[in-house]
Amino acid sequence: MLKTINYISNLAMPLIILIIILYGVKEKNKIFDNFLEGAKEGLEIVLSIFPTLIGLFVAIGALRSSGIIDIITNLLLPILNLIKFPPEIMPLAILRPISGSSSIAVATDIMKNYGVDSQLGMIASTIMGSTETVLYTIAIYTGCVKIKKTRFVLAVALLADFVGIIVSIIACRIFL
């Protein structure tokens, strides 16, 4: 089963590219000229998101290294116990929306310490599968079109992540 899934996920990208190229050949388009035109535009996109990335990474790096996350978790501990939220998951829940790489590190840590197949391990995996690095995504999507007024997008995206985390915990508790 794992092999099949691996095979499918490895197959997806080459297959999509192949189908697109075959379509292009079939309809006798100038494939490589089109490719170059598109790729040139890609350069512009990266240039437009680069400053955003630098700023964001420094802020998030500082947040992680300063140890403030542990303090927030400790402060929230009484509330977490009250709603039966597993406190081990809290650092992951805080980091998940702001940093992809550090949330992967935290999730791996949880899985190592409490066991991959334990309830906590499963919760961590499910959270990683069902949420996304909100801040980074919003920053580069708005950064590439230089939009400043983002209206309510951050609030809704955070809400979605929050729902993802809560549902992950509930689902793991019910099914395991």
Binding site: I20, N34, F35, G38
Partner: peptide, 18 residues
């Protein structure tokens, strides 16, 4: 990102002409 973005932009350009 520069690599993947340029690649996929090129690919989508091809796709959008078909």
């Amino acid at each position: 990102l520069l690599g993947t973005i340029c690649l996929w932009n090129g690919i989508i350009k091809i796709a959008s002409t078909t």
